[in-house]
Simulated scan of single mutants.
Amino acid sequence: MRMPISRTCPFTVPPEYARLRGEDPVTRVSLPSGDEAWLVSRYQDVRTVLSDPRFSIDATRPGYPRMRAGAEPPPRRRPFLDTDPPEHVTYRRMLNGEFTVRRIAALRPEISQVVDDLLDAMVAGGSSADLVAAFALPLPSLVICRMLGVPYADHEFFESRTRTALAGDVTAAQSSEAMGQLFEYLEKLFAQRQDQQTEDLIGKLADGPVAAGALDRRGAVGMILLLLVAGHETTANMISLGMLTLLREPQLCDELRRQPERMPAVVDELLRYHSVADSVAVRVAVADVELGGRLIKAGEGVVTLGLSANHDDDVFDQPHRFDPGRSTRHHLAFGYGPHQCIGQNLARAELEIAYHRLLTRLPNLHVTAPTDELPCKHQSQVFGVERLPVQW
């Protein structure tokens, strides 16, 4: 089998996934880089790979899967991104306070204001828009920029570089160059902030662990880079895909307008259903591990299929259905284990507020293009739609 395995539309899972789970749940796969790795498709096996210390996220280790042709291992481990416990825990603690349930709850009024400002601008511009460009992309970008201390005026720069870095149809050199430009931009910004005292995350890292010598500047910039890229691209895609799904269910939309307390459960089901970051979680074995009836040897790479795991019918009843009444808090859309997404509380809050305000402020909102004509991000590491034309 060869990667990538593309979706045919926003509402279908590649049929190969069901076959893999049933017949060959841990199988060999050829990656675009030419590397061979193990492909893991069942829910329980994916959880094992993401939580068992015998699998490492350290991309500098021999055998770590390279997804792109021409990709090279990073020259050194990147704090937070490429480190395993217990080292990873040390770096994670430097960020945890900004993403707790309490901290995100305190941010909800600010997120709501950003949402309403964007909706005001949409309405002032007429009765139609591209929901991706007018709302889905700027919302998480604005929020994460404010949290980090990155000027939103530069959003076109970092959004374009992020698209290039995550695109599946660019070379490893082009992706690396885009990430390098983002790193250089953030490093200059961080250097400027070291002479100031600010309450954003850049300021807190500069005044805290960097000033104390617990983290160097490059390590801090790497953390900010990861949060900036992950903090807008994934949520933006979920906003547009989620609304596309909800608008197919007019009765549900009416119910959610009257019962907003249901929105958190609906958000989790949407996260499970779409699983936009399907194959981004990769590892390398550091010991021999038997998994799914196969022996994975130390030094062999592993690629997990989050979309397949979240559609495992041993775990979820009729997983191909979008079921807003099901309990899906245990889905794997945010990963699992020590590297589970640190920003999941923020993402949930943004999605809950965005969906609710779109449904209530624009009750006649509807998509104006057939689903099969919507351009999808089939070649990106994070799935979504390029555009979503709507009217209200």
Results as ranks from 00 to 15, higher is better:
N237A: 03
P264W: 06
K297T: 13
H320K: 07
D254I: 08
D254Q: 13
V284I: 03
R248S: 15
S279K: 03
S275I: 11
V282S: 08
E199W: 06
E255D: 15
R283V: 03
S308P: 12
Q259L: 09
V302N: 03
A309I: 12
I296Q: 06
H320Q: 13
M238V: 15
V303P: 13
A236I: 05
M243Q: 04
D317Y: 07
E269W: 05
L295G: 02
A212R: 08
L291V: 09
L227E: 14
G213Y: 03
G222L: 04
D254S: 11
L244T: 01
L205V: 13
V282C: 07
G325Q: 12
A206C: 02
N237G: 08
V282W: 00
D254C: 10
R257D: 15
A230Y: 05
M263L: 07
V266P: 01
G222R: 00
G219T: 01
L201V: 11
L215N: 01
D216C: 04
V302P: 02
R258L: 14
L247D: 15
H274Q: 04
R218C: 11
L205N: 05
A211D: 11
V267K: 01
I202N: 00
N237C: 06
T198N: 14
R283L: 03
G219H: 01
R257T: 11
L227K: 09
P324W: 07
R258D: 15
D200G: 11
H320R: 08
T235R: 00
E249M: 06
Q251H: 14
V229Q: 07
A285D: 11
L227I: 10
L295I: 12
L215I: 01
I239K: 07
L305F: 15
T198D: 15
T198G: 12
S240M: 10
G219K: 00
V267D: 06
L271W: 04
Y273L: 05
F322I: 08
A230L: 02
S279Q: 09
R257N: 11
L256M: 07
M263F: 10
G213D: 00
G208E: 10
L225T: 05
A212M: 03
D254K: 09
A277P: 03
P264K: 02
G301K: 05
V229G: 04
S275E: 13
L201P: 14
A281R: 09
H274Y: 14
D317P: 00
V286D: 00
M223D: 14
S240H: 11
V210G: 02
D312N: 06
G292F: 14
V276L: 04
E255I: 01
E269Y: 02
L228R: 04
E269P: 01
F316P: 08
A211N: 01
V266K: 01
A220P: 08
A220L: 09
G213V: 01
T234I: 15
I224D: 13
D323Y: 03
D254V: 08
L205R: 09
G219S: 00
V303E: 13
A281E: 02
G306P: 01
R218A: 15
K204F: 15
L252S: 14
T304Q: 05
H232V: 02
Q318N: 14
L225C: 06
R248G: 14
T304D: 06
D312V: 09
H274S: 10
H320L: 10
L295D: 15
P324F: 05
G292Q: 12
A298S: 14
M223T: 14
A206K: 05
L226I: 14
A287S: 10
S279H: 05
R217I: 12
V280C: 00
L205T: 07
Q318R: 12
D323T: 08
